[in-house]
Design a protein around this nucleic acid. Structure first.
Ligand code: ATP
Length: 649
DNA sequence: ACTTCTTCGCTTTTT
DNA sequence: GCGAAGAAGT
């Protein structure tokens, strides 16, 4: 059926029609790579491939949802919903869930986000029994080390070598790092929890040690497709390669000029070497940009040509010339903010744009503050994407952790946090004592609490508090899991038993917090409505793995007409009629980290980031900078970003 | 154990 | 110039 692919140009069609063998689409921004992948998936199914045999890996879960919707339009939602589509992390988790026994886990796992992982590391490092200084081994740094190792598939046994090789000139003692990493893994497993890195690393080792399991998934996933392949890291590379064997029906799509996740271990050589990595690769080049005006495409090309390490691809457009891009020099960040606001008002009042057509991009999340107050003062509706997540607020966190407890009472880290929410004369010291006892006797914290009278240093009085806490809160919530209740009922019961609303009322700013909490309940209700078959585990996973992005599907209602603010990283793969890129100054964009770096390639990654920013725009692109910028109360004069100089040269 | 005061450091980006 | 983490007080 040729008409299915009528939305593609001849080159795109070639890729979408090549159903067998390795396929590489290496092409510039806005050339329709994602679109081609979408249509190809529909084509596969149309040609009789069972959707359950297709694995499509996307960079965000939001991108997966968009793609699924589009495929549903093409071939119907029943089939579209059966495709295994999502991020490496969510697909990895799905595989782990089906194989918990093989890896020594029990049902109902917790997913640890960075904050959870960091508190576990903190509790390990500050454990009085092992003398590790928190100053010398800061938990946040330890977490980034461990994630880095996991991205490289390094486990505690190989950590020593890794440290010697990569961190020889630091003060870290490799043996200490191994000790911390080992303990972290041990406790995480005891708590029946996965961190983000596990979601890719553990399936890889599962496959390695269980050839039967690997075979099962290789057979299942006859077709593997990966979007944004330039930003895959070692673990992801190995994971997808393993699954694509032996049939090698793998299609990867990406743009080396848009590789911006090096900090997460991504390596764009994965895409540049793809042709050598697989045999008989079918290569498709897409050169025509469908997204942007000529002036935007030309500007982006003029910038990225300054990078030395790149494949070098053509990119042109048949779209209109469009308005010249606007480079705005302002005296200071106040004036910069005012300029942007004024321009937004002009676009909306006189040029026929809507607020929702407009997006402001910046290098780091904190930059949102520079513009937010100006938007507020002119009552321009806006939404900040990413960064401080709604679900990370204390009141949301509390309730989500309480729900998590009713799901996975083995998670002692979580129990520790929960005890802290209640000011019931049980504090950090008591929790530490209990945890130590749990550790030494190799039992769970819940069990330790039951026999707390045996714990050294817990007196009669303290034991009484502990027993009360168990009886009033923890045990009744733990019971829920065994009762086969509906998700809605569980949520209600947890709310009632925990008296979370009372806790919120006792906090400062309780009015705001109560409102947030009610909003949380509303969100949860919406999610349950949309996914009727969700279990509690799936609900919590949905919230964790979609953090930052719209967990709740975007309102298509009136109050959705808002301008969006986000980092350039978050804008990957998206497009907007109007884009403002703010703060184009040396040490802001490019970031000071890259400017001061010994590594010359660091600036190239910043330039790619700018390239991504510029190429998000369809019609209008504004680049702004301030000659003076306030920061930390002080302030200083700035130098215009080299990226602007390069455009003007 | 909980509350209030003082100091510090902030230098990225996300699943 | 602000929020988190530590120190000191109750
Ligand atoms: N053949 C085509 N006909 C009409 N529109 C197209 C065609 N190809 C792509 N487009 C449109 O161009 C825009 C960019 O496409 P898409 O997002 O797939 O590009 P991409 O290469 O994945 O971009 P990027 O790498 O910048 O994220 C989309 O709005 C898409 O619908």
């Amino acid at each position: 059926m040729e008409s299915l692919l009528s939305g593609l140009n001849p080159e795109q069609k070639k890729a979408a029609n090549r159903l067998l063998g390795p396929v590489l689409v290496l092409a510039g921004a806005g050339s329709g790579k994602t679109r081609t992948l979408t249509y190809r998936t529909a084509n596969l199914i149309d040609k009789g491939v069972n959707p359950e045999n297709i694995l499509t890996l996307t960079f965000t879960n939001k991108a997966a949802n968009n793609m699924k919707e589009k495929i549903a339009e093409l071939i119907g939602s029943e089939k579209a919903n059966k495709i295994w589509m999502g991020t490496f992390h969510s697909i990895g988790l799905r595989i782990l869930r089906a194989n918990l026994n093989s890896i020594g886990y029990r049902n109902n796992v917790s997913i640890y986000d960075s904050a959870d992982s960091e508190s576990l590391l903190k509790s390990i490092i500050t454990d009085p029994r092992i003398e590790i200084s928190k100053k010398e081994y800061p938990p946040a740094r330890m977490l980034s080390l461990i994630s880095e190792m996991k991205n490289e598939l390094i486990r505690p046994d190989e950590a020593k070598q890794f440290m010697k090789k990569n961190y020889a000139q630091t003060t870290y003692d490799p043996r200490r790092i191994v000790q911390i990493y080992k303990k972290y893994e041990e406790l995480k497993k005891k708590y029946n929890a996965f961190d983000f890195g596990d979601l890719i690393l553990m399936p890889v080792y599962l496959f390695k040690y269980n050839p039967k399991v690997l075979k099962f998934y290789q057979k299942k996933f006859q077709y593997v497709q990966i979007d944004e392949y330039q930003d895959s890291n070692t673990a992801q590379y190995v994971f997808s390669k393993m699954l694509s064997k032996p049939q090698n029906n793998i299609m990867v799509v990406g743009d080396d000029d848009q590789a911006i996740y090096g900090f997460r271990g991504a390596d764009f050589r994965n895409i540049l070497n793809f042709s050598e990595d697989f045999e008989d690769v079918f290569e498709v080049k897409l050169e025509k940009n469908y997204r942007s005006t000529k002036s935007i495409v030309n500007t982006a090309n003029d910038l990225i040509k300054h990078n030395k390490v790149r494949k070098g691809k053509k990119s042109y457009t048949d779209n209109e010339e469009g308005k010249d891009i606007k480079i705005a020099s302002t005296a200071n960040n106040e004036k910069e903010g005012k300029f942007v606001v004024k321009e937004i008002q002009n676009l909306v009042n006189n040029k026929g744009f809507k607020y929702k057509d407009i997006t402001i991009l910046y290098r780091v999340n904190a930059q949102s503050l520079y513009i937010e107050k100006h938007l507020k003062s002119k009552s321009i509706p806006y939404e900040i994407i990413g960064a401080a997540n709604f679900f990370d607020r204390k009141e949301c966190q509390m309730f989500l952790n309480l729900l998590k407890f009713s799901l996975n009472p083995l998670d002692d880290l979580n129990i520790g946090l929960i005890i802290g929410y209640y000011k019931n004369n049980l504090g950090a010291t008591t929790i530490k004592k209990l945890k130590q006892y749990s550790d030494e006797n190799n039992i769970g914290l819940l069990e330790t609490m039951r026999e707390a009278h045996k714990v050294n240093g817990i007196g009669k009085k303290r034991n009484k508090y502990i027993q009360n806490f168990l009886e009033n809160y923890l045990l009744p919530m733990e019971e829920l899991r065994k009762e086969d209740l509906s998700l809605k009922t569980i949520i209600n019961e947890v709310k009632n038993i925990s008296q979370v609303e009372r806790l919120i009322n006792q906090m400062k700013n309780s009015d705001d917090r109560r409102e947030n909490f009610n909003q949380l309940l509303g969100f949860i209700e919406e999610i349950i409505e949309k996914h009727e078959d969700f279990s509690l585990e799936e609900l919590l996973e949905h919230i964790k793995l979609n953090a930052g992005q719209s967990v709740i599907d975007e309102d298509k209602s009136e109050d959705d007409n808002k301008i969006k603010l986000m980092t350039v990283h978050s804008s990957k793969g998206l497009e907007f009629p109007v884009v403002f890129v703010m703060g184009l100054e040396e040490k802001t964009f490019p970031h000071s980290f890259a400017v001061n770096s010994e590594n010359k390639l660091a600036i190239e990654e910043e330039r790619r980031l700018a390239y991504v920013a510029f190429t998000r725009a369809e019609k209008r692109l504004y680049l702004t900078y301030a000659k003076y910028r306030t920061k930390y109360g002080g302030g200083s004069f700035t130098t215009r970003s080299r990226f602007i100089d390069e455009l003007l040269a």
